[in-house]
C-alpha cells in the first residue's frame, strides 16, 4: 500500500468534527468515490472523531489517499492519548456504551468501512484506522 496524499488535523473541540468531516468528504470526492461510499465514510469518521472528543478529550486525525493494487481509497486514522479501552470486544458490541449513548459508534463505523483496525492500551490511548476503497461495497 502506498500513500499519495496525507494531512494531519488536531481535534480539540466540537466544531473540529464538522471541519474534519468536510475534509474527509473532499478526499472521497477527489478519488471519485460514489455518493453512498462518501456518506458511509463521513458517518464512520463522525463517530470516531466524536468518540475521541468524548472519551479522550480530543486527539489527532490523519487523512490519507492510499493505493493498493491500483485501486485508490481513503484511509483515516484517529489517535488519542486518552484512557484506552479495557475490553475491546465488549466495546465493539452493538449497544455497549459507558456514556449512556446508543453504543453504535464503534460497531457501526466498522460496518461502514471496508477495513477497520482498533488498537487500544489502558492508560496509553486508542488508535482506530479505517479504509474505504473507491469501489468498496
Amino acid at each position: 500500500m502506498m500513500t499519495l496524499t496525507k494531512e494531519k488535523l488536531t481535534i480539540l473541540r466540537e466544531p473540529d468534527v464538522i471541519f474534519f468531516r468536510n475534509k474527509a468528504k473532499e478526499y472521497a470526492v477527489k478519488i471519485g468515490m460514489s455518493l453512498v461510499g462518501q456518506t458511509k465514510l463521513i458517518t464512520a469518521a463522525s463517530e470516531l472523531v466524536r468518540n475521541m472528543l468524548r472519551y479522550a478529550n480530543g486527539g489527532e486525525a490523519i487523512l490519507e489517499i492510499v493505493v493498493r493494487n491500483n485501486i485508490k481509497g481513503v484511509r483515516l486514522t484517529f489517535a488519542d492519548k486518552g484512557p484506552g479501552i479495557k475490553d475491546v470486544k465488549q466495546a465493539m458490541q452493538d449497544g455497549f456504551s459507558t456514556g449512556k449513548s446508543l453504543g453504535l459508534g464503534l460497531p457501526g463505523a466498522k460496518r461502514l468501512s471496508n477495513e477497520f483496525d482498533l488498537k487500544s492500551e489502558v492508560g496509553k490511548g486508542t488508535t482506530v484506522t479505517i479504509i474505504r476503497w473507491k469501489n468498496g461495497l
Partner: peptide
C-alpha cells in the same frame, strides 16, 4: 444514501 448508512450504523 442516508438510509443505507443508517441501516449499516445499526440505528
Amino acid at each position: 444514501e442516508i438510509a443505507q448508512t443508517i441501516v449499516h450504523l445499526g440505528i
